[in-house]
């Protein structure tokens, strides 16, 4: 297979005009937390719905001296993460890492890394459905008017219906949040466990939806509150009593692994980079002791 040569394309694949337009949309999004800014989503050598929104954000922001980390559902080595990393690296030549602390641009799907992010880091999230009001009304003109009026009754009614019929008002992933007491936004399909990490975070969160052509953002130190009724406060998934079988971590988000042969259930850190780092540290500690 022929490999892509860096000089065959502009730096970071997109032309400079496109990157500039996307950066303008990002600035607009940062200025109004949670507000969905429309942008001209570009064609990419990757299918729409496979992270093209996130890639365009990353491509517009990345510089030659940046260090990139790409994760897919917490995993550094999944097909989607590897393909995206390969595209970005082959058109920019930047360094990649699996260590969250070393990266300054992290592109992710479905997870926020376990390690708290710093002010000098940007987390780019890939978003399939940016519009929290889409289940309320199918028309874009109507949902924009509802956002303008801060009319979120429809979302609350859906949560109430869930509470009434299923006993819980909380969605497994993509539970809506209120950004800066103004806009309700979908935090991309991150598990509820990660929602509190958005609140008053040090880093910049950017959300890109390539198919839906929307960009939105949560700037550092912004108030982000998960929607919950007064008498049913927001709850994360309960990870109490679980432990990673590889690194022994507790109080993190776990993947559950079922062994059909033995019928046993194991838990493993969903964030593989974090797990590997812990394993290496434990190994180094042991070797040091010897």
């Amino acid at each position: 297979m022929e490999t892509i040569k860096r000089n065959d394309y502009n730096f970071a694949f997109l032309d400079e005009g496109s990157k500039r337009e996307i950066r303008r949309a990002i600035l607009h999004a940062i200025a109004i937390p949670g507000y969905q800014v429309p942008f001209g989503s570009r064609e990419l050598p990757i299918g729409r719905g496979w992270g093209t929104g996130g890639i365009q954000l990353t491509m517009s922001l990345i510089g030659p001296n940046d260090t990139l980390k790409v994760i897919d559902q917490g995993n550094d080595d999944s097909v989607n993460a590897v393909s995206i990393k390969r595209l970005i690296c082959s058109t920019t030549g930047v360094e990649t890492t699996t260590d969250t602390a070393e990266a300054n641009i992290i592109q992710s799907r479905h997870r926020i890394p376990e390690e708290p992010l710093r002010e000098d880091q940007v987390l780019v999230l890939q978003v399939p459905t940016p519009e929290p009001l889409r289940s309320v009304d199918a028309h874009e003109a109507v949902t924009r008017q509802l956002h303008a009026d801060a009319e979120y009754t429809g979302i609350w009614v859906n949560l109430f219906e869930q509470l009434l019929t299923r006993g819980s008002a909380f969605k497994g992933a993509d539970h809506p949040v209120m950004a800066d007491d103004r806009y309700v936004m979908n935090p991309s399909p991150i598990p509820r466990y990660d929602n509190p990490k958005l609140d008053h975070a040090q880093c910049l969160y950017l959300f890109g939806a390539g198919r839906e052509k929307k960009i939105y953002a949560v700037p550092p130190y912004t108030k982000v509150e998960s929607l919950a009724f007064d008498d049913h406060p927001f709850e994360q998934e309960n990870m109490e009593g679980r432990k990673c079988r590889l690194c022994g971590a507790e109080h993190v988000y776990f993947d559950e692994i079922f062994d059909p042969e033995t019928g046993e259930r194991y838990y493993q850190c969903s964030d593989t980079g974090y797990c590997l780092k812990r394993q290496n540290e434990q190994k180094a500690e042991k070797e040091g002791l010897r």
């Binding site: 009754t153 609350w156 009614v157 109430f160 009434l164 007064d230």
Partner: peptide, 22 residues
């Protein structure tokens, strides 16, 4: 939506956020 949620819609629209009361 359930009939309960239909009725509650009016309460939510008027600012109700106490699910038990609704």
């Amino acid at each position: 939506l359930s009939s309960g949620a239909n009725i509650a819609e009016k309460l939510i629209a008027a600012g109700g956020r106490d699910a038990g009361r609704m």
